[in-house]
């Protein structure tokens, strides 16, 4: 079974033996020259595809939403921490014992 598999792999790996170069399609040169000529005659434009513009806008909005959400989360947890520090922390009470008069 294993030998069979290895032999099959060898056959597949050797399947490129004797390969010939693929030939370029006819009239490719004519098409290249055509493309070169049309590129030379075309005015240079700064056109941005509509799809790309929408993706950029969507990414920007998503980034803003994430930022706002993140800032809100930080503010909320920050406030909670200060409440804790003022009120219920055992260290706050104990510190009064070390006040200097």
């Amino acid at each position: 079974m294993n030998n069979d598999k290895e032999q099959w792999k060898d056959e597949v790996m050797n399947s490129l033996d004797g390969i010939h170069r693929a030939e370029a399609p006819d009239f490719m040169f004519t098409r290249i020259v055509g493309r070169l000529e049309s590129a030379m005659n075309e005015p240079v434009s700064s056109y941005i595809p509509v799809k790309r513009a929408w993706v950029a806008i969507a990414c920007f909005i998503l980034l803003c939403v994430c930022d706002i959400g993140f800032l809100k989360a930080i503010n909320h947890s920050g406030l909670n921490n200060t409440h804790e520090a003022r009120g219920s922390s055992p260290y706050a009470i104990e510190n009064t014992n070390f006040n200097l008069y």
Partner: peptide, 19 residues
């Protein structure tokens, strides 16, 4: 299927190209 592959190797070569 690469056009330059020998006829007897066509199917195996197709698998090799996928890999």
């Amino acid at each position: 299927e690469h056009p330059g592959i020998l006829l007897e190797n066509k199917d195996k070569a197709a698998i090799l190209f996928k890999a």
